[in-house]
Design a protein around this nucleic acid. Structure first.
Length: 478
DNA sequence: ATGTGC
């Protein structure tokens, strides 16, 4: 169904802007935000997945591709696609992906950098003990069925209600820490049970807990508003919905593959979809929201354990939350399409929402700066804190989520010896703790794009502005 | 991403 065999070439529209005009089954164009260098490393599979997304029923405006995009399951990672609410629109479980609600939370501390440098090994060991990580990392908390149901409905607010955080944390979290409309009844028993021993665990893959230092400030006013200063110590948590979100995705991808509407063959089994108005579509929406809440509660719980660990080591320290934002979501939003305000269901996979100052959906807390955008780098490289800018109107109010993979996990394993990576990180002054040096190699810097170039590109297009660059000092990995 | 594939 998708125009795979046609010779598709993005047309250069402006500096760092490219467009794929509709051909074959494509209903809308694809708008790519990338430099020449970044577009040259996007493989044919990524381009194919973008044009496939642009071929789905009810797709609105254009499909957006971020500078960090690479191929994924169904949609590429780094893709934004909105679908009209109502009869013609669809929702796709593969479009959101397996790690529902995966995102980044950044906390700010008042601990002098010199003290962190002096006690780096001790801090790394304490965090590694306190925060379960890796595929088998199991939680210190054990949850019963009622608690799991509450978490799926309440998100981070559940953790705060149970003494794991402050209400200020929720103000500094997307959706105030709770996605409305979640329904645990649409989440299978198996998916719910998988949370039993997993709340407050980091997971594996590119998930991490990093202690970082603010390396440079690029927007003094926004940095002051965010509470950021040069040489400040920050904490970033990159994690998701663990087994629960994965199981929700598995369940609904299967169900959508088995229940495709008549006359609407899926372009690809990984991109099976359901009409938004169908029972299955509505059920997935409610289950996906529960998955987002699971991820929000997970990061809130991890943040609480990190705070407890730091308070033991630095009893007088103060740790506040800058922001928490997910980058694997489907969200109901209003967008202006061809001059008309439309209600859309916007899938963001490996892309964050980016509301500029003055946008009606942005709360008062960040109206002066625009919504914070947390860009996680690869292990051992920098992260960026950006704020959404006016140009985000052209990206359906979205920005990039990271550096983006350059090599597949298998390719990375071939090119990176685990031992030499550990040595290189140590040499770079980064204290790494991991349960699996083998999996660590898959996350080696050589497997990722240059986060500074990706960030430069995103900001050059006007979708976001640089606020601060963060450099890792301690990294806890699965 | 994932109690790692059907």
């Amino acid at each position: 169904m998708s125009p795979r065999n046609q010779n598709i070439r993005p047309v250069r529209k402006a500096e760092n802007r490219w467009r794929i005009y509709p051909v074959g089954t494509m209903r809308v164009p694809v708008d790519i935000f990338a430099s020449e260098a970044l577009i040259s490393v996007m493989d044919t599979e990524t381009i194919h997945q973008l044009t496939t997304a642009a071929s789905l029923p009810g797709v609105a405006g254009s499909v957006i591709c971020m500078p960090d995009a690479h191929s994924g399951y169904g949609f590429p990672i780094g893709c934004v696609a909105g679908f009209c609410a109502g009869k013609e629109g669809i929702i796709s479980a593969g479009g959101v992906g397996y790690d529902i609600g995966c995102g980044v939370r950044t906390l700010l501390t008042d601990i002098p950098a010199a003290e962190v440098y002096a006690r780096r090994g001790e801090i790394a060991d304490a965090l590694f003990r306190a925060i379960p990580a890796g595929l088998k990392g199991s939680s210190h908390l054990s949850l019963n069925a009622e608690e799991i149901k509450q978490i799926l409905h309440e998100g981070a607010a559940w953790a705060v209600r149970n003494g794991m955080g402050e209400k200020e944390d929720l103000w500094h979290t997307e959706e105030n820490g709770c996605v409305a409309g979640a329904d645990a009844a649409q989440v299978s028993t198996e998916a719910r049970q998988r949370l039993t021993g997993q709340l407050g665990t980091l997971g594996s893959g590119n998930h991490y807990l990093e202690i970082q230092i603010v390396d440079s400030i690029h927007d003094t006013a926004a940095a002051a508003h965010f509470g950021l200063a040069e040489n400040q110590i920050a904490i970033s948590i990159h994690s998701g919905s663990r087994g629960t979100g994965h199981q929700i995705a598995t369940d609904y991808i299967k169900a959508m593959q088995n229940a495709l509407p008549d006359g609407h063959p899926a372009p690809d089994p990984s991109l099976a979809y359901a009409p938004l108005t169908s029972d299955l579509g509505r059920r997935y929406l409610a289950a996906m929201k529960a998955g987002r809440n699971c991820a929000l509660a997970n990061r809130q719980t991890i943040a609480h354990m990190v705070r407890k660990t730091f308070l033991r080591l630095f009893p007088s320290c103060r740790i506040t939350q800058l922001y928490d934002v997910s980058h694997n979501t489907c969200n109901e939003e209003h967008h202006v399409i061809e001059g008309q305000s439309r209600r859309l269901f916007v899938h963001r996979k490996g892309a964050t929402r980016a509301l500029p100052s003055g946008h009606a959906a942005l709360g008062p807390l960040f109206d002066a700066t625009g919504q914070p955008v947390l860009v996680g780098g690869s292990m051992g490289t920098a992260s960026w804190i950006l704020c959404a800018a006016r140009g985000a109107e052209a990206s359906m109010y979205s920005a990039n989520h990271g550096a983006g993979r350059l090599l597949s996990r298998a390719q990375a394993r071939k090119r990176q010896q685990p031992r030499s990576l550990m040595d290189a990180l140590k040499h770079a002054g980064i204290s790494v703790r991991t349960h699996s040096p083998q999996l660590l190699a898959e996350e080696a810097p050589l497997a990722y794009k240059d986060v500074d170039h990706v960030t430069d590109t995103a900001c050059a297009t006007g979708i976001a502005r640089k606020v601060a660059r963060l450099r890792p000092l301690i990294c806890i990995k699965g």
